[in-house]
Each structure stands twice: as structure tokens, then as C-alpha cells.
Design a protein around this nucleic acid. Structure first.
Length: 482
DNA sequence: TTTTGAGTTGTTCGA
DNA sequence: GTCGAACAACTCAAA
């Protein structure tokens, strides 16, 4: 019997730097497949924006496979059942895949692996998605790191992230007709109403666009990343997050490109401030996965137990105002509207809107995380959960409780020209810079000249920040006293 | 075992 | 207007 390897595109939707694909191709004929596995993922099935991206990622992956003589088989259902059906239909004797690390995914693949091996099927998994896999980096006492900086030092000390396999030039496909769902049947993209216009205008899913974006960033903006990354009105960040989330590009490729890009002049020169700051962000992604692995309840429960009984407010109207970008705080509203329109939000603004939800509105961080989960094209279980907990003060290495972002101050500091707010909150566009980030303090003459009546054309502030800050400090102090 | 140094991203107040 | 201190201890990691 001819050897045939089923290649499960479990997450890393790319052809280059894909060790499972490389090993499968080296072995002989390969049948690549993808499983839409909502039942396996349960509450953490991808949200609306992620599904939109997934459609494009799969289209692009299939096109790349066809260029190399194969095609992507699409199946829906629990992954274990899909794999069993494919084995029965093809007589394959091996299943290869790259690992993923959501708690539900780990539990699932443990079962699948055991089941395959008990039947004499070769089951092999590989690391494609992380520089260092969870469990690889531990403290001298053998415990998981809970503080970022020591984790980052250990990660750098490990090194060796340059080794990558290239995309296979050709894939030997089996001479079999294997049924595949039509992608359109999965309805990953919205019908009516079509809310994805902004996503289409801002993003191009796929491996080639991801590579292009990385190459441009590593040659250019990364140099000034340390300063420019904080300005949401400029293009100072990499915007690689959705590509990384879907594995259209991997962190090892990012690592190598950033090192190569900044070392052209002098290969021995240390990394510049921009490159170092950027790779630290890549390391935060690693740290988040590391935390999720060791603390699998992280998406549902605060890491710091004393927060379990925190008296979060219940205020559906306030939550809706926040979601819709109608809080009356321009930088907050701009961020949430950018998110709704493009499926993405600038990182600096993510912190501002998160601080506003958790500290100004005293709403549960899980409500914010759920909204991000549904609306972000880069929604990532580890980063999303870890970052929301960090802002809320209940996570590992968390923000001190007294750190409460002042939206007007943050706006003036990081969007001084108002370019970001004017773009996403156009009803305020004609206000002078000095009044833009705090319209409730604007002179009546400026409001009149801009044609704005607060409460009619733009909301009055949902809460008074100074008072809300006092309330948050008091509430968080109660936790601390316990 | 004990000690020591350090810890992503901020704001406000008063001199 | 600028600048440093206060905010509050606590936990983590490593020597």
C-alpha cells in the first residue's frame, strides 16, 4: 500500500516555515485538510470578524496548495470524527499537524493522538506557532514564569529561532477523489446585512500579504517602533496580529526578518531600540500562551483569586454605549468605532478603552474580552484573556490598581494632532485641537463654530472621569485589603 | 533559607 | 509650567 499522509492544517495556515507540511511532503503523497470545528471549541469558537478572516485565509491557502499540485479538503465537524472519516476514505497511514495550545485544543488532540496510535496510524505533531512552547521555559525552581521580564530574558537566552523550513516546491497529491465542502457553504462571511465592507477595505488575509507586510515593516517602520507605536494616528505598528493569529506567518519568520532587516549595515550591531521593542511585543504574545497553558482557566477566571468576588457593575446600557463608541470620551469612542469598522484597534487605544470599561465604568473585564473576541480579526484566546486581566489588575504581573488612564490626557498625549479622533469621530472634526479630546470642556463659541451641541451631535460624557476614578480606586482598594 | 532587587504601557498633587 | 514624589505594598525570580 502506498504511503499517504493526512496533513491537518490545524492553525498555521501557511506553506513556508511549516514543519508538519515539510515532514509530510518528505514522507510521500500528502492530502491537506482543514476542519471547521466549532463544536470542539465550544465557547471559544471564532467570533464574527475572525470567521470573515478565516474565509480569506483558507481561500489563499488553497490557492497556494493548487500552485504546488495539491488542494485543500474542507470538512466540518468534530476533528476526531473528520479524521476517522478521511482515514477510512483514503487508507492513509499517517496524520501530521502543527500544534495549537488552547486548553480545549490540547484536550482534543491528546485524545485524537491516542486513538490514532492505538490503531497503528502514525500521528506526529510539530511546533510552528511559538518561539518557545509552553512548558519549555520555567524558572530555576521549575515553576512557570509569572513576570514578563524574567520570561523574556529566558526566551532570549534560549535563542535558535532562525531555523526554518522553506515552502515545498511541489506536493505529491494522491490520485483520489476526496469530497470537500464548498467554502461558501460554511457562511464564514456575512450575507445581509454585509457588515464586512470596512474589513475588506483594510485587510487582505493570506500568506503572501502577510509576508509583504512583514518585509515592509522589517525594512522600515520597525526602526522607529519604540516611539511611533504609541501614536494611533500614524502607521507605526506592524499590523501583523491577524496574520500571526491565523499562522499565515510565524513568530520565527518575524524574528528572522526583524534581525535581518536591521542588521544589513552591520551584522554584529546590537538590535536597535525599535527592533528590540517590537520583539518584546512578540514575546508578550509568547508569554500569554505560556500563561494560558499553565492557567487554563484564564479566559474565565481572574488569575488573582482575590478578584473572584469583585463587585463589578451590571449596566447593559453603559456596556452598549461603550461597544458602540458613544461614551462621550473621544479617544475611547474613536477606538471602539475603529474596531467595529476595521476589525482591529491600535494597541495604545486598546489599553485606553479597556481601562475605561474596567475602571471608569467598573464593568467586568470579561464583558470587554467577549466584545473583542467577536469583533477583532486578531482575536486570540491567550493575548485577549491575558491582556484584559492585566488591565483589570487581576492578571499576572498586573497593572497597579491606581493606574487609571485619563482619556483626555491620553488623547492629548498620543493623538496631539487629533488625526485619529477626527478620522473615527468625524462629528468632532471641526473642533480645535485644544478642545478635541475633552469636548465637555470646550468653549461654547468653539462648539458653536463646529456645529456641535453636546448630547445631540455627540454624547455628553457617560461618567465623570474624576469621580469614576475615585470610585475605582475605592473599589480596588477593598480587594487589596483582603 | 533569607535577602535583595525589580516589576510594560499612569495620574495627580504640591513645591 | 515643570518636576519629583506619592500612590501601596506584594510577589516573583534569583543569588
Amino acid at each position: 500500500m502506498a504511503l499517504l499522509t493526512l496533513l491537518w492544517f490545524n492553525r498555521d495556515l501557511r506553506l513556508a516555515d511549516n514543519p508538519a507540511l515539510d515532514a509530510a511532503v518528505a514522507r510521500g503523497p500528502v492530502l491537506p485538510f482543514f476542519v471547521l470545528d466549532d463544536a470542539d471549541a465550544g465557547a471559544w469558537a471564532p467570533g464574527g470578524a475572525s470567521r470573515w478572516w478565516l474565509h480569506g485565509a483558507l481561500e489563499s491557502l488553497d490557492a497556494g496548495l493548487r500552485d504546488r499540485g495539491a488542494r485543500l479538503v474542507l470538512r466540518r465537524g468534530p476533528a476526531g470524527e473528520v479524521i476517522d472519516a478521511l482515514l477510512a476514505q483514503t487508507g492513509a497511514d499517517a496524520v501530521y499537524w502543527n500544534r495549537r495550545y488552547e486548553p480545549w485544543a490540547i484536550a482534543r488532540t491528546e485524545k485524537i493522538k491516542a486513538s490514532l496510535r492505538s490503531r497503528g496510524i502514525a500521528a506526529r505533531s510539530f511546533n510552528a506557532g511559538l518561539l518557545a512552547e509552553p512548558g519549555q521555559l520555567v524558572t530555576l525552581k521549575g515553576e512557570p514564569y509569572r513576570v514578563f521580564t524574567p520570561f523574556w530574558r529566558a526566551l532570549q537566552a534560549q535563542g535558535g529561532f532562525d531555523a526554518q523550513v522553506p515552502a515545498p516546491a511541489r506536493i505529491h497529491a494522491p490520485a483520489l477523489q476526496v469530497a470537500s465542502d464548498p467554502l461558501s457553504q460554511w457562511q464564514l462571511r456575512p450575507g445581509r446585512p454585509d457588515w464586512a465592507g470596512g474589513l475588506r477595505a483594510h485587510w487582505q488575509p493570506g500568506e503572501a500579504p502577510a509576508q509583504a507586510r512583514l518585509a515592509a515593516f522589517a525594512r522600515g517602520a520597525v526602526q522607529d517602533y519604540a516611539e511611533q507605536r504609541n501614536l494611533p494616528g500614524t502607521a507605526g505598528t506592524s499590523r501583523l496580529s491577524p496574520h500571526l493569529h491565523f499562522g499565515e506567518i510565524g513568530p520565527r519568520q518575524v524574528w528572522r526578518a526583524v534581525h535581518a532587516g536591521v542588521q544589513q549595515a552591520d551584522p554584529d550591531a546590537p538590535l536597535g531600540g525599535g527592533a528590540a521593542a517590537y520583539l518584546a511585543e512578540i514575546a508578550w504574545r509568547e508569554f500569554s500562551w505560556h500563561l494560558l497553558f499553565h492557567f487554563p482557566r484564564m479566559p474565565q477566571e481572574p488569575l488573582r483569586a482575590e478578584f473572584a468576588g469583585f463587585p463589578w457593575d451590571e449596566d447593559p446600557a453603559a456596556l452598549r454605549a461603550w461597544q458602540g463608541g458613544r461614551t462621550g470620551y473621544p479617544i475611547v469612542d474613536a477606538g471602539l468605532r475603529e474596531l467595529w469598522h476595521t476589525g482591529w484597534m491600535h494597541n495604545r487605544v486598546r489599553m485606553i478603552v479597556a481601562s475605561f470599561l474596567v475602571k471608569d465604568l467598573l464593568l467586568d473585564w470579561r464583558a470587554g474580552a467577549a466584545w473583542f473576541w467577536d469583533t477583532l480579526v486578531d482575536a486570540d484566546l491567550a493575548s485577549n484573556s491575558a491582556s484584559w486581566q492585566w488591565v483589570a489588575g487581576c492578571g499576572a504581573d498586573a497593572a497597579p490598581y491606581f493606574r487609571v488612564f485619563n482619556p483626555a490626557l491620553q488623547g492629548a498625549k498620543f493623538d496631539p494632532s487629533g488625526a485619529y479622533v477626527r478620522r473615527w469621530v468625524p462629528e468632532l472634526a471641526r473642533l480645535p485641537d485644544a478642545a478635541l479630546h475633552a469636548p465637555w470642556e470646550a468653549r461654547p463659541v468653539d462648539l458653536a463654530a463646529a456645529g456641535i451641541v453636546l448630547g445631540r451631535d455627540y454624547p455628553a460624557p457617560l461618567v465623570d472621569h474624576a469621580r469614576a476614578r475615585q470610585r475605582a480606586l475605592w473599589a480596588f482598594e477593598q480587594i487589596r485589603k483582603r
